[in-house]
């Protein structure tokens, strides 16, 4: 081995020194340079992968730039780290692993949106039929919109009716803001749509045309104030009473009444859950 290295070194020096010299003297160096090539090839095989020529492939050498080489070394190091950890875990805590059959799963895979899970569990209790969800669902063309006159029947106390000037959609926390009048004084009431205190929500009158605002706060100004909706509600309740008391007749009658009323389409039979006053 020692002799091989010595001769290889000699070959390198000769090859460098005699590269430009005539072949008469170069003949001796050929043997040495071959040995150098062989050793270089065995030391750095990745440089000779393509082409198979005796000279190292310059292209490959360029590809294996500093960054790539660094990344490769890093990857190897990480792999060693992972295997070291697995091995250490196996050796140092084998008894506990045996006692623990399965590793816990990432909870985000099981339940990505826990707030939605809590909301759905609440809706299952407070809106089992989904009627109220549909009433305020934007995808429903029959849904209640701002500008409609809504009537909220409550568990205790008198029902309250007013123009809906704001719908705050927040899952189970969804709320509506109704503006009406009591004793000639303008009143605004927030009702939580899914509250158990709200027995039902009914659409008394649809808006004449779709509101071009999300919140009709301009109705607080005297110029735009609808004032009392008492008369509209009285007519609605009278018609509803005339159309029958049982559920089946009511539903049929509601459609007929809507046709008769011409403009105002009424949505009856909406079971409200509850509302909370603010």
């Amino acid at each position: 081995m020692a002799t091989a290295i010595v001769s290889a070194k000699a070959g390198v020096s000769q090859a460098i020194l005699l590269a430009a010299k005539p072949p008469a003297t170069a003949a001796k160096s050929i043997k040495g340079s071959k040995l150098v090539d062989a050793m270089h090839r065995s030391l750095y095989p990745h440089l000779y992968q393509q082409g198979g020529g005796s000279a190292p492939n310059r292209k490959i050498r360029q590809q294996m730039g500093t960054m790539k080489r660094y990344k490769q070394v890093e990857a190897e190091r990480e792999a060693r780290k992972v295997s070291w950890f697995r091995n250490k875990m196996r050796t140092s805590s084998s008894s506990k692993l045996a006692a623990q059959p399965q590793k816990p799963r990432a909870i985000r895979r099981t339940c990505h949106d826990p707030v939605a899970a809590v909301t759905s569990s609440q809706l299952a209790v407070h809106d089992p039929t989904g009627a109220r969800t549909r009433l305020f669902d934007r995808a429903n063309p029959e849904c209640a919109r701002v500008g409609d006159i809504l009537l909220v029947r409550q568990r205790t106390g008198e029902p309250f009716a007013g123009v809906c000037i704001n719908i705050r959609r927040r899952g189970v926390d969804t709320a509506i803001l109704l503006r009406g009048q009591l004793t000639r004084v303008g009143i605004e009431m927030w009702y939580k749509v899914y509250s158990p205190l709200v027995e039902g929500i009914e659409v008394v009158q649809r808006a004449q045309r779709k509101a071009r605002r999300a919140r009709l706060t301009y109705m607080r100004k005297e110029k735009h104030d609808r004032g009392s909706v008492e008369n509209v509600v009285r007519v609605y309740l009278r018609q509803k009473a005339a159309l029958g008391s049982s559920d089946g007749t009511k539903k049929k009658g509601a459609a007929a009444a809507a046709a008769m009323a011409g403009g105002g389409k009424r949505k009856g039979n909406v079971k409200g859950k509850k509302g909370k006053k603010r």
Binding site: Q122, G171, V172, K192, Y194, P196
Partner: peptide, 14 residues
């Protein structure tokens, strides 16, 4: 993970 509300079915309390 976020805030919401729960209702008590009996008292209606939010």
């Amino acid at each position: 993970r976020g805030m919401t509300a729960v209702f008590d079915p009996e008292t209606g309390r939010r």
